[in-house]
């Protein structure tokens, strides 16, 4: 013990090797506060965020109970295994009952009468058949500014792009279709549009004029959306009354 108490610095590797903090040594908090630039603003923001979190928790009236629900084992686990097994079994049943068809071998010399992709690409394939609405510009002498194929590819990009930016267009805490008839109508219109686009590749096969099918492909989604909008608007008043009453009974406004 007496050896360790001597204050002589030793370099033989013995001793605790840790210098006890004195008043001069900055704490970690002080070190972080002294930083500059990006690490400084990061530190400041995280301090703010932590304080915000703490304040919100203190203000909250949410009651946390000791036991909130079911045990993971066995209740949740068995339920999940049951659902997964049922689903897998359904899949195997389907495979046994409806075996797939292997068509004719590929033949570049023989174009099939109807070219169609798998069903989940029908909408995308339909968007490639929009050439009647590919605009012709007077300034380039009535010529199309882009090829019909490019127009179709762009239509695909636009559709996927619009779907991707939806959360930036529609914000707020509304969850049910009745709360936002416009967005529900847009959704229904979109689903119907996917179906009507799917029939564009086979539009010649109907016993009426092609133009009628083509126009219907655009009018039907609008009609469906309008009906949805009207129905939800009508439902809305009584429904929202009930919903608000229950919502505010559970969490009374302060």
């Amino acid at each position: 013990m007496s050896e360790n108490e001597s204050n002589e610095p030793r370099t033989d590797g013995s001793g605790p090797g840790i210098v006890a903090p004195d008043d001069e040594v900055p704490t970690w908090r002080e070190r972080k506060e002294r930083t500059t630039g990006l690490s400084r603003v990061t530190y400041e923001y995280f301090e703010r965020a932590r304080r915000e979190d703490q304040d919100l928790r203190q203000e909250s009236s949410y009651v946390e109970r000791d036991v909130l629900g079911f045990p993971t084992w066995p209740h949740e686990t068995i339920r999940n295994i049951a659902l997964a097994s049922f689903f897998t079994g359904m899949l195997l049943f389907l495979s046994a009952m409806l075996p797939p068809h292997l068509g004719d071998v590929a033949n570049p010399a023989e174009t099939p009468e109807v070219i169609l992709p798998d069903w989940y690409l029908y909408w995308s394939f339909g968007l490639l058949h929009l050439d009647p609405i590919n605009p012709e510009l007077a300034i380039v002498g009535g010529e199309k500014i882009m090829s019909d194929e490019l127009y179709g590819v762009l239509a695909n990009v636009v559709v996927v792009g619009v779907i991707a930016i939806l959360p930036f267009l529609n914000k707020g805490s509304a969850r049910r279709p009745v709360e936002e008839p416009f967005w529900a109508a847009l959704g229904v219109g979109g689903v119907v549009f996917a179906f009507t686009m799917s029939i564009l590749p086979i539009q010649e096969m109907f016993p009426w004029e092609v133009a009628i099918t083509f126009d219907l492909a655009f009018f039907l989604p609008i009609i469906a959306a309008a009906i949805t909008y009207a129905v939800l608007k009508t439902m809305r008043e009584g429904y929202m009354y009930d919903l608000n009453r229950r919502y505010y009974r559970l969490r009374p406004p302060r």
């Binding site: 068509g103 570049p108 174009t111 070219i115 992709p117 194929e149």
Partner: peptide
């Protein structure tokens, strides 16, 4: 799409043809 091109049947070939035409556009 890549999956149903693998059997190299008529469906696969002409779906691939559409894919090539789309990218060339």
């Amino acid at each position: 799409y890549t999956g149903y091109l693998l059997p190299w049947n008529q469906l696969a070939f002409w779906a691939g043809q559409i894919g090539v035409e789309m990218s060339l556009a």
